[in-house]
Design a binder for these strands. Structure first.
Lengths: 259, 259
DNA sequence: CCGACCTTATCGCTATTCGCGAAAGGCAGC
DNA sequence: GCTGCCTTTCGCGAATAGCGATAAGGTCGG
């Protein structure tokens, strides 16, 4: 019997290469290893983490799968240009210019991003409990659910489920399985339900199986989850949206004044 | 040789009980299984996920470790009262009332929360690259770093690292290893660096080893990471703070008006 | 053009874990 | 007290983690 390992605690149940990948990932995200820089050589990483060749390799493979680094045989592994996009909800919700189909897409196009939205489904359903309370609905009242998938460079990046109360959406283009020109904000305004302010609740989650497959997540990455409630000027909610973003592709930016 | 498994795709590399736990966790977080409700019986979960008894058990054990559910032998596994706290940065940064030591703590105490802050370290260091760019520092300029650990009910919940430029913090109580009465915002105001507005960049991350151990994370939970830059009225930054919250304990709420 | 250095890929080997099934034991509510 | 239902435990086969070593091939500097 060999000694099971000198370290008594440090009960990090994750496998060793996952922990190594986590630390390297942080070095990249914080800019300690900026885009274009070379990672330490495998030998250096071996001594730094006290791991074997194959384990380092597995850790690096994780980072490659995430698209954080690229490695060519013979040369050092280098950090790729950051793919993480910073989203400013307050700005990206501004009404689209006349004739522009989608606010998001036009903003994305400015930054040279190839973004696309796929409308997955439009149905009437009884929403989950958190949506019900957000919209102030009773019992099993139904809503119009619009499910969308956002692709960036043909890679799934975000899963959006927008719920509208029936008294808002019934009989309108919102309840029809077609995209809405100018975005839903413009349409809601035309329908007399003018959006006034938004409340976002942001959390980090472990992806469900549905999310994992829809977003084609590489590795055990978390998901950045936003529950947005759009209110009218009188405070009544007109829309509740659950946005699930791939954690390695997004970052949210909010600006505020204390108090 | 047995058939290796009928499903060809669904390349979810996670182990089966982790996937089951992920789906159940989502049911709890969305309120589909509200606090006090009973989870489906083991037998029901067996058929729902097509897994064995022991596998279901492992999945439930994960949820128990996270404090999401409690199980007593003989009775159903029930959902615990939600421990996830909703933080509103705009409100919790309001100046403390006179005589009150910490803004956060007084707000937490109102909700009956036993919160405590441990000041881990106060040093002068060259900050990581993301902090440098946030503060607009050149080369290897140093900063005052104040590291804190926030405990809720004696459990580590948040790791805070606040960086101040030397021209702001040098020679002030900020550079001394003591807690600051009234909070740093009040002190900065007294020093003539009046905070005006904040910019938060929020992301979901895989915890590093340091974070994993400092927060004593149960299981492979993600971390909710905020990089906050505090600006003065003229736009110059006076503080950059990295806040790393345990993902299962926190939720951030931001309110904004589009455009 | 050559050689040092590095990454990539592979192969044994062992210990651990995953996942299955079955069976034993406990605590509720009826 | 009986009957669910949940908990715990055991053994077993398969898959994986992690180690060490080795071979193959590309890249860069001199």
């Amino acid at each position: 019997m060999t000694v099971p390992k000198a370290e008594p605690e440090s009960h990090d149940r994750r496998s060793l290469h996952e922990r190594i990948a986590a630390d390297l990932r942080d070095d990249i995200m914080t800019g300690e290893l900026p885009p274009g820089a070379n990672l330490p050589s495998t030998a250096q990483l071996r001594t730094r983490f006290d791991a074997s060749n194959a384990t380092i390799r597995k850790a690096l493979q994780l980072l490659k799968d995430e698209g954080l680094v690229v490695g060519r045989a013979g040369a050092a592994v280098t950090v790729r240009e950051h793919r993480q996009r910073t989203i400013r909800p307050a700005a990206s919700l501004a009404p689209a210019a006349p004739g522009e189909p989608y606010p998001w897409l036009t903003e994305a196009a400015k930054h040279g991003t190839d973004a696309r939205i796929i409308l997955l489904d439009v149905t009437e359903t009884a929403p989950p409990a958190d949506i019900r309370t957000a919209l102030g609905l009773q019992g099993n009242a139904k809503t119009v659910l619009r499910s969308q998938l956002l692709l960036i460079d043909d890679e799934p990046a975000e899963l959006v489920k927008a719920y509208y109360p029936l008294n808002v959406a019934s009989g309108t283009p919102l309840a029809k399985p077609h995209r809405i020109k100018g975005g839903t904000a413009t349409l809601l305004r035309q329908l007399g339900h003018t959006p006034h302010h938004c409340v976002d609740r942001v959390s980090a989650r472990v992806p469900t199986q549905e999310q994992f497959e829809a977003l084609r997540l590489p590795g055990n990455l978390p998901v950045l989850c936003t529950l947005r409630v759009v209110h009218m000027a009188d405070g009544r909610p007109i829309e509740a949206t659950s946005m699930v973003k791939a954690g390695h592709l997004y970052e949210l930016q909010y600006e505020f004044v204390p108090q």
